[in-house]
Design a protein around this nucleic acid. Structure first.
Lengths: 198, 198
DNA sequence: TGCAAGGTTGCAGTCTGTGCAACTTTGTGG
DNA sequence: CCACAAAGTTGCACAGACTGCAACCTTGCA
């Protein structure tokens, strides 16, 4: 009998989550530099070597990159109504992220805070958006019928949309205005050609 | 007699350049992963320990971050005519970079190529734009009279402009269309609200 | 000329990250 | 039910990045 997802895959997914949860928790508690891979491994109940089987670096573990996530978001952009403008479809996808499973959003916010408090993480954090960018460029290229690499437009619109999302994320810090409101304000300005507010 | 810039400072600047030149050259020749800090130090004729006095990481040395450079670009934005729109002033500043000292542009292009060929460098490369972003946010805040942090606009316009510049840089690869043309096309699209090409 | 500030170096040590080979667990087919 | 293949986990040895510290050298100035 071959289960839709076998015990093997489920265990792998669990292990990945366990490592990344442990890494995030420890990093939040003690700071990313004060913890070692050994600490993370111990907290996740695996060997240090195994941590590197799942994540290329310690920071990746803390930030919990999940390649599948990017593909999901790309898919959600493809599923938006065909008549929507690219920028509108992208904005909707970001709103989906923001309003998704509360627990996921919570963890995601914790990561943003952590990066804010520890700028050493910034490079790795930004790097995590590269996979998302590629997935979205692909989706936009399909929607518009443009060539993903040959044409300037797909990468341009995705790249600026992600930048816009990140500004909104940063602005909607803990206790500040809602993320949705920030996304709306930022994307309106972007679609309007970024003229300065009166 | 106190020289405008003393021997000390000149030597420091020279050493920084020597290290970063050596690091870039070796990385281009052998790949960033195949060279060690010891190699770089030897090529720059300093001790390995000294390399870390100038750059926090090996990758920083290869990518040759110079904090002063960001301040210069910020200054050039402030010096644009006051009636120019923020996006126009930013675009002009990027064109200045592209048309500046040929030798500098040459090195800068070599770095872009290197990053393209070795994506491991991408995170650090992108991180290098953080200093530029902050300098430009400051400049735009002053030009518009908006609060750099309290208002969404300054960071939004700078962040998207940098993303746009980077897409143009990437597009204008070696032997491809001119960088200026790419900057023009990309910024026109951005100022037009990123509607898809007909 | 002599001294203080600042820059460079070597050293010892910690930690990240990798290749490899043994070991364990899961899935499958006889 | 049992063997066997496939896939995952672990330990080990090791290269190399990076840091703190203390000694040493060079520059700027009185």
């Amino acid at each position: 009998m071959s289960p839709v997802v076998g015990l093997r895959e489920r265990k792998k997914a669990d292990t990945r989550v366990a490592i990344s949860r442990a890494a995030l928790r420890l990093a939040v508690e003690h700071g990313p530099d004060s913890i070692t891979v050994d600490d993370i491994a111990a907290a996740a109940d695996v060997s240090p070597r195994t941590v590197f089987n799942y994540f290329a670096t310690k920071e990746e573990a803390i930030l919990g990159f999940d390649p599948n996530r990017s593909l999901e978001v790309g898919q959600s952009v493809l599923e938006r109504p065909a008549r929507e403008l690219p920028l509108t479809a992208l904005r909707a996808a970001f709103v989906d992220i923001a309003t998704g499973v509360p627990e996921v959003a919570e963890i995601s916010r914790a990561r943003v805070d952590l990066v804010r408090r520890h700028p050493q993480l910034h490079p790795s954090y930004v790097a995590g958006y590269a996979a998302l960018e590629n997935a979205l460029v692909d989706a936009i290229a399909r929607r518009t019928g443009l060539d993903a690499e040959g044409s300037l437009y797909p990468r341009l619109v995705v790249s600026t949309a992600i930048a816009t999302f990140r500004v909104a994320l940063d602005r909607a810090g803990p206790g500040k205005s809602s993320l949705i409101a920030a996304i709306d304000e930022a994307f309106d300005a972007l679609a309007g050609g970024l003229r300065p507010p009166r």
